[in-house]
């Protein structure tokens, strides 16, 4: 009797699309439509775990779950060992560098004189890698949410954040300076699970066929 297949589903903006994709792939997702405060939903030989998006790579990498749906943003930031199986296409967003529309002084001018720029972000690893590639020296401040406040308050000159439509940035009078990378939702598996449990590759196949 095989053990239940453990699947992590990300809370938040990817949740509805993730559940729909799992449904199209033939899984029984009834319990996921309104789980209430329940964080684990059992359905036949599948167990769903409803996990905070940035924690999904941790659950997968350490084998807490066998597989998961997870945004590329979280995967890149966590930089943990997982097997990336399918690009699911939904949850598209962009990582961008942004600064206030009406800055007193342009950040570039300050950078000329100071030699370093302060960047606020929820994604310090992606941010560091991007600016290293650009050859720009930055001091990175990690925040946990509402990154837009950092340049508005003067905490940092610029931010690196994800945006789907750009609305939040516009409403906070921030403009995009450059693009860091694009992200979509991925189906990922734990290395040991993928190599030992054929159900994961089968699920990957079905998810790929029913995008």
């Amino acid at each position: 009797m095989p053990q239940a297949l453990k699947i992590a589903v990300p809370k938040g903006s990817l949740y509805a699309d993730s559940v729909a994709a799992l449904g199209r792939a033939g899984l029984d997702i009834q319990g996921l439509s309104d789980p209430g405060r329940q964080l684990r939903v059992c359905s036949g030989d599948v167990e769903f775990y409803i996990v905070r998006p940035s924690d999904v790579p941790v659950f997968v990498s350490y084998g807490g779950v066998d597989c998961a749906i997870c945004g590329r943003d979280s995967l890149e930031e966590a930089a943990l060992d997982v097997i990336e199986l399918v690009d699911l296409g939904f949850g598209a967003c962009r990582f961008v560098v942004a600064e206030p529309e009406a800055a007193n002084r342009p950040a570039d001018a300050d950078y000329q004189r100071l030699g370093v720029m302060r960047i606020a972000t929820k994604y310090p690893r992606i941010t560091a890698r991007y600016f290293d590639q650009q050859g720009v020296q930055v001091d990175i401040v990690k925040l946990h949410g509402n990154i837009e406040l950092a340049p508005l308050s003067g905490l940092a000159e610029r931010i690196v954040d994800i945006t789907a439509t750009g609305t939040t940035l516009r409403e906070n009078r921030l403009r995009i300076v450059s693009e860091v990378m694009a992200s979509t939702a991925r189906f990922v598996g734990n290395i040991a699970s993928v190599r030992t449990d054929p159900r994961i590759r089968e699920l990957a196949q079905r998810l790929g066929e029913h995008k």
Binding site: Y62, G63, G64, I191, A192, S193, V194, R195, T196
Partner: peptide
Amino acid sequence: DFSVMSAFDYYTGLVLEAYAPGVGVA
């Protein structure tokens, strides 16, 4: 398993990895 294209650049032929249930790493 041809997904075990492991790893270190010094491998020239056979590559292998061992797994056991309940442990998420090789």
